[in-house]
Simulated scan of single mutants.
Amino acid sequence: MAADDDAPDPIEDAAARWAVEQDAGLTDEGIAALEQWLGSDSRHPPAFEKARAAWRFMGHPAIRSEVAQRRLSEPPLPGYPPVGRPGGKRKWIAPAIAASIALVVVGTIRDWPTALQSDAMTATGEQRTLTLADGSQVRLNTDSAISIDYQTDRRIVHVLKGEAAFSVARDPQRPFSVEAKGGSTTALGTRFIVDRHADTTQVTVTQHSVRVAAPGFGASTAIVKEGQSVAYGKSGIGSIHAIDANAASAWTRKRLVFVDQPLRDVVAELNRYHPGFIVIIGTDLGDRRVSGIFRTNNPVAALDTLQASLKLGSTRLTDRVIFIHR
């Protein structure tokens, strides 16, 4: 049986947590346990040094904000019983350890509440194409979920989270609509993409046209044509604007296209496909402009290319936790 590349590495796991505990201040018992662990295997010291290098960046405000949202239980360190210690650093040690473990050795934690509601769901970095009962096709992007509600007089697909591209089979007797965040997008013989964000839903048309309605936000409607995009949210439907349909649908071909985009936006998009944690250290670096075409199924390779072309450095705790800096 082939090894699972995403399986937890117990050495990297322990090294990451030892680095955090050492930074917080070890007791005499903890120092002895760390020394014993370092001397018990020749692989432990280099793993520990690598973890310490990555941990230097963990105090950055952007990272603290991110790790504060993570939740994961902490198994005890090898040979060191979990003993609470006073001190300011200890206040955020738990979520920081949780983040390093979650991102380095566990990856994404499945969204079970959404999974229970969905008929189809993808993990981070996964894409999936479904053929529905009427012959329509749906391609789910990374970390996305839908539920299907086909009835005798209508066809409804709910985007529960993430992004989905639709290719609709014609059936004049049963309109095809996609619902997300209280609004709906009805196909008028078409191909289109619905991307559900936290506050808004983006509708992009790649063939023919759709009717977008946001009845919960002032009963506004709009006809969006091929090569156009529009967003709706609590304030209603925004302005319709032209887009590059080929670039907008590139993810359906496992590609990401960027034309003169800020590095922070590019990294944010790569993070959608990366089962880990990529952070830019330094606000000015995020302003650097980027153009390129990258594969969705290898965000780390895309990051390597960006790093080389922009002459940037990186510190990595495996390929799961990556800090981009000068």
Rank of each mutant, 00 (worst) to 15 (best):
H158S: 01
L140P: 06
A32K: 13
L26E: 05
D143T: 06
H241K: 15
G59R: 04
L130C: 05
F323I: 01
K311Q: 02
A94Y: 02
P81F: 08
G182V: 12
F48Y: 14
L116F: 13
W55T: 01
G218E: 14
P10K: 10
V205F: 14
Q261L: 13
H158K: 03
E12K: 05
A98R: 13
R295T: 07
Q137R: 15
A24H: 01
A268D: 12
G227D: 14
V83F: 00
H325P: 02
R71N: 10
L160Q: 03
H208S: 15
V194Y: 03
F192I: 08
S235K: 15
V178R: 04
T305Y: 05
G162D: 06
P215V: 10
A102E: 03
A54K: 12
G79L: 04
R211K: 13
R110L: 09
S184E: 10
D153V: 09
E126L: 04
G84I: 08
P75M: 07
N246F: 03
L26I: 03
L306A: 02
G125M: 05
D260Y: 05
N246H: 11
A268I: 03
P95K: 02
L140S: 09
D171K: 05
A16V: 08
D304Q: 09
R56W: 00
F258V: 12
S40C: 07
R128T: 09
E12H: 00
I148F: 02
A3F: 04
P86I: 04
P45A: 07
F277D: 09
L130D: 13
Y150R: 01
N298S: 11
M121G: 06
A250T: 10
R326W: 00
A2G: 07
L72Y: 06
Q261E: 15
T27N: 00
L256P: 06
